[in-house]
Amino acid sequence: MSETILDLQDVTLRFGGLVAVDGVSMDVRQGEIRALIGPNGAGKSTIFNLVTGVYRPNQGTIRFGERSLNGVPPHRLAGLGIARTFQNIRLFSSLSLMENVLIGAHSRGRSGLAGAVFRLPPFRQEEENLSLQAWEALAFMGLDQKAGELAKNLPYGEQRRLEIARALVSQPRLLLLDEPAAGMNPQEKSALMETIRRIRDTGITVFLIEHDMRVVMGISDRVAVLNYGKKIADGLPAEVREDAGVIEAYLGTGGKRERRRTRPVVALPQVALEGGAGHAGN
């Protein structure tokens, strides 16, 4: 087994009386595609926010490689090698695609105020390198032809791709994708799955949250399931799919159905049980 790149040990986060994340332990291994699934409100995005330093855990430790992430300010993480996308797309919408990606490369640059105002040779060299890297990232996501357009003018699917390009340009070791397939049509989804595999093949470890079971079961090496802030299952996609606790979390049990009806999980179980089988074979 390859080494662990991200390690959560007994992580707990409380908001007042609400326990959003409850003693979760999980790991992400170098070079894999790791998925985190669960019903709405299970605490998936909160886990991402804990890893990226938006929240600090009340309990437990988060390690990235050898380094503890407790107390590391959020803006340092890009430099350490963690990049992320957001569930509700967060682009710099009135800037061009190129500028969006250049800002993503911020942590790769060093130049400061003096370099900017006096345009000294080291500054120019760096700008040249950064814009080349930005072009590569845009080309990797198939957006290089639109580099000069404003981010807000892109169709939805391309905005999602731009967010990934912005994350990739920082040359992360670990890429966190928060529901990358949300709102995509089937073709876009399969293109996305292909893209995620390509990203993994460049040596970047991918950790994703996803609702779409076809996507999750199709590309993930290992899947963890979260419900009410607790981890209820963890393992290979095929194992997780068969897990009684997971099925209950998504479907509810016969007798308790009345109570669980309000849970806003739709369309997942069918895909999980039927559609997923076709993809498990690869």
């Binding site: 890009a78 957001f86 710099f92 919408s93 800002i103 911020h106 130049s111």
Partner: peptide, 30 residues
């Protein structure tokens, strides 16, 4: 000086603060 500053790593970081602070932070902008 302003044109040069805005069209640099510092200027882009400043604009990213205006556009979306959370995304800016995730991109490594202090």
């Amino acid at each position: 000086a302003m044109a040069w500053l805005e069209n640099s790593r510092n200027g882009r970081a400043m604009r990213s603060v205006r556009e979306d602070e959370i995304a800016a932070t995730a991109s490594g902008v202090n």
